[in-house]
Amino acid sequence: MNTRRPVAAALAVAGYVVMLVPILFVVVTAFTAGSTLRFPPEGLSTRWFEEALGYEPFLTALVSSLQLAALATALALLIGVPVAVAIHRGRIPGKGLVEGLFLSPLIVPELVVGLALYQQLMIGFGLDSLTALTLGHTALMIPYAVRVTGASLALADPHVEEAARGLGASPLRTFATVTLPLLRPGIFSAALLSFVTSFNNVPLSLLLQTREFRTLPVTMLDYVQQSYDPMVAAMATLILAGTVVLAVLAERTVGFAKIFGGINR
């Protein structure tokens, strides 16, 4: 940081404090030996990690969350990649409109979508929680698949694919041997983004939960409301550790900034 720009540097430091210090507090609290959320913590222990890992509702919810995130990510890619290919390589009328339509789930507030699916599909249609959640999460993840894989398609030279066709490869073979490898970094970024976004989602998962199927973030919110002990801090620290592993993986493979660059532009 530059000391010749004192005002900017002071604001930047304040920004980092707001972004990161609360996360440190979660970690410190998780290692307390005491039984309340108090600061400074009373002694050091790993008892709350043991409690969290032995707490049945958290474990069930963790499995549910991973299941849902994997399912929604796979579906969003299966549906979104063909859409990206059609938009960037196909001859379809009104491309801008089509792309806008597929990105529209990003604009509508998630809580509004959650309420809509709960009211119309679960109550109105009698869908079970997992089906409604899969539908909703997939619809929300499709924009990531379309935009992020679309960004890597837009960068790739379409002449390579035309050359493959010209040399006699079938459209399917061209897709499998030329287009798909070009798309690999985009698909990886989109998969990572949708998995994490689905895993962390609260608004949809909150409204579409049932006693039989609820995700980890929703279960943790619920727990905080009932009881004020540090077990949630321990669970949160475990999630943090998992997220750090994913982030390092992302940085090593495609680069962090690139993954998020695709969604903002």
Binding site: M19, V28, I239, L240
Partner: peptide
């Protein structure tokens, strides 16, 4: 990377810290 990383982290985890603070 430190500024972008929180985007990957659960809102519940990030918000929980304020309860302790």
């Amino acid at each position: 990377a430190l500024a972008i990383f929180p985007l990957l982290l659960s809102n519940v985890v990030r918000t929980f810290g304020w309860l302790v603070i």
